[in-house]
Simulated scan of single mutants.
Amino acid sequence: MRRLPLRSAVAGAAAGPLAVLLGVSLAACGGSTAATVSGSGPAGPGPSTTAPGATGATATGVTAAVGGGSAAPAGRAAARCAAGELTVTLGAAHVNTGDQHERPVILTNRSSRSCAVTGYPGVELVARDGSTYDVVRSPLVRPSRIVLAPGGQTRANLRYLTVSPGADGAFDAVRVLVTPPDTTTSTPLTWDAGPVLDQSGATHPGTWIMAFAAYPK
């Protein structure tokens, strides 16, 4: 049974040659206010680029308000979302290109207060035999501080390469563990998308997770 080592996110974007960080329980945090975006939840796909590269693990982009809320005024910034304040779900899968598919990891603020999410979720696929596959992070979406009003949502797109059952390199996932940023609490979800290609040792794998982002109307 294989278990990959978990690693923490590092502050700042990786420089020089492209680098990859494993998806782990604690995702990046922090950010600076540059703009405010309002909306009722995530909609629409992310970028269509099909290769991950170096990871920028610290948010230096916009602060966005999602779910009809607004950016908190100076001195009253929204606190980070605790695991117990978030509901974690998987959206519907669709074909991106070729054997690469995409589905959103969605966080919903179920609390009565506004709270903030920054960075990447930890995503770990689990096979029937208990072996695990930690999904790497991609810089295709720049991490930013997302303020969720009560009921607000944010999404991080998960892209993955499908493969036929029993094929060489097939990882027969049956569950996926999702850990919100800045928390250590994982939510187990059923994985119903079939086997994915195990590229745990690849330099540029075709399976990765993006940072959470706000999607305006």
Results as ranks from 00 to 15, higher is better:
187 T>G: 04
36 T>P: 01
52 P>Y: 02
43 A>T: 13
58 T>V: 10
201 G>C: 04
208 W>V: 06
110 R>W: 02
135 V>A: 08
177 L>Q: 12
187 T>N: 07
109 N>P: 03
84 G>A: 14
87 T>H: 13
171 F>E: 06
26 L>W: 05
162 T>W: 01
33 T>K: 03
23 G>Y: 03
152 G>V: 05
121 P>C: 02
4 L>D: 14
174 V>N: 10
161 L>A: 05
112 S>K: 09
99 D>S: 13
82 A>Q: 14
194 G>W: 01
101 H>C: 03
8 S>G: 15
3 R>E: 15
40 S>Q: 11
133 Y>E: 09
10 V>P: 02
181 P>K: 05
83 A>L: 12
186 S>A: 15
99 D>N: 14
201 G>L: 10
143 P>G: 07
14 A>Q: 11
164 S>F: 06
125 L>E: 04
80 R>F: 13
101 H>F: 10
44 G>P: 08
46 G>W: 03
167 A>M: 14
159 R>Q: 08
86 L>W: 13
164 S>M: 11
56 G>K: 02
156 A>W: 02
134 D>N: 13
45 P>T: 11
215 Y>M: 06
100 Q>M: 11
188 P>S: 13
203 T>V: 13
30 G>F: 01
88 V>L: 15
104 P>S: 02
134 D>C: 05
210 M>I: 00
200 S>G: 11
111 S>G: 09
71 A>Q: 13
9 A>T: 12
127 A>E: 06
208 W>Q: 01
125 L>V: 07
62 V>I: 10
28 A>S: 08
82 A>R: 14
2 R>A: 11
